[in-house]
Design a binder for these strands. Structure first.
Lengths: 232, 232
DNA sequence: GTATGATTCAAACAACCGTTTGAAACGAGC
DNA sequence: GCTCGTTTCAAACGGTTGTTTGAATCATAC
């Protein structure tokens, strides 16, 4: 086994991963059968079990292939911001950019499958199959604490639990938007502009920041009388 | 079998619906088998096909049982606000209250199954099984246009498509929060306070309004120099 | 060419899926 | 008592699921 042979199994592994990724997004894990995947990938039925061991292991590899890189990019972005801040707390929009901006940029990549994968990831956030839940928790174990701490430092006057809830809400807004389901067919007519992949980010980021920095429940009345010029 | 005993073991139909609702939320539609439902409900396997016709019809009835009422309540709330506004445009927070407030109140009802159902609904928003998608679109057909129009009137200076996108984002934030998956285990430690069912609403509503009224992308820089006292 | 290990293939495996069946049990009306 | 329509029941249906098998094929090294 030389280094060149790392490419060995020509493309059947990758072809299976690509087909599975696209089919999982469209039909979910359960409804996507091995025969559907292998048929779509143009490989033999048994090759999934040969290359991955089981359907469950395939699902995990579909995520691992891109999620590891994604989370590294998120940490790199955070590192860059913290380096140029020279010890000072980051601005909230920088933290949001580091976490969600990277995701949205990957979701905008329609050529290398990033778009498909992010749709799958967004979908999976609300699909609590036990082993997928555990897998996601493990993959994010290194990322979440870093962003938690950065947010706490950035918003010292906001109760930590409130920050986490809002991070939680932001994650929900993004994952649903990226999943692209549009259950109520609200933006169906506007969703066509796939020519401009960055459009979603330009719409979503202000929303997320507006939500993150909204007045706290107790301060709602106080902030109202100061109401400055906003979209509303 | 007296009347008393009839209540002891309630209607077979209703027991099936209750069991299915709870199991769908936990395992999804595909993974929830007929044998699991009937076993959990303590009824015969064949009774689902007898009372509902098919598994697909059961799924639709699980939704219909509560969703029709929920959407009526949303329209009622909107009617009340519009009546007391006497023709004037509604405030954004009233529209948000009419749509999301009703959902959150139902989600806070842990006694009559409202909580379980809203978790299921939140989960389903991102699960695009074809016939469920179609079903949801039909159920919301009467509601969505009303709220669209109310929002357009309420925010005449915001481009309509931007309003719809933000409504879209709000829906994502709420559905993920209600589904209660917490994929990244962000608020796992705080989610315990089920004693206070209104807590989620008090946290989520300011976030939604903050996002809805956030400065538009183009106006971000303009609004920044005016930055008033906010949570951040 | 031949030997060797990795990969592919068609076929079969047991287990489970949603659904159907025909008989048994039930409750209300006469 | 009996009848009749509704509901429940155990058993089986054909089809599909993920997985396994053992032989066939391939690529490489001697």
């Amino acid at each position: 086994m030389s280094l060149i042979e790392a490419k060995q199994s020509p493309d059947t592994r990758e072809r299976i991963l690509d087909a599975a990724e696209a089919l999982f997004v469209e039909h979910g894990f359960e409804a996507t059968t091995m025969r559907l995947i292998t048929g779509c990938a143009g490989v033999n039925l048994a090759s999934i079990n040969y290359h991955f061991g089981s359907k469950e292991a395939l699902i995990q590899d579909v995520f691992r292939r891109r999620l590891t890189w994604l989370n590294e990019e998120r940490l790199n972005a955070l590192d860059r911001f913290e380096k140029e801040a020279k010890g000072a707390p980051l601005k909230p929009h920088q933290i949001v950019e580091a976490f969600f901006g990277v995701s949205l940029r990957m979701a905008a990549d329609t050529e290398h499958g990033g778009h498909t994968f992010m749709r799958l990831l967004g979908r999976t956030y609300t699909e609590p199959t036990a082993f997928v839940r555990q897998f996601l928790a493990d993959e994010y174990a290194a990322v979440v604490p870093r962003f938690k701490q950065a947010l706490f430092r950035s918003l010292p006057d906001v109760p930590p639990e409130e920050i986490l809830w809002r991070f939680h809400f932001m994650l929900g807004a993004m994952s649903y938007a990226i999943a692209g389901t549009d259950a109520l067919q609200l933006v169906a007519e506007y969703e066509m502009d796939e020519k401009d992949p960055g459009a979603l980010a330009r719409r979503l980021m202000p929303f997320l920041l507006g939500g993150l920095r909204a007045p706290l429940a107790g301060q709602a009345a106080k902030a109202k009388e100061k109401g400055s010029r906003r979209a509303a």
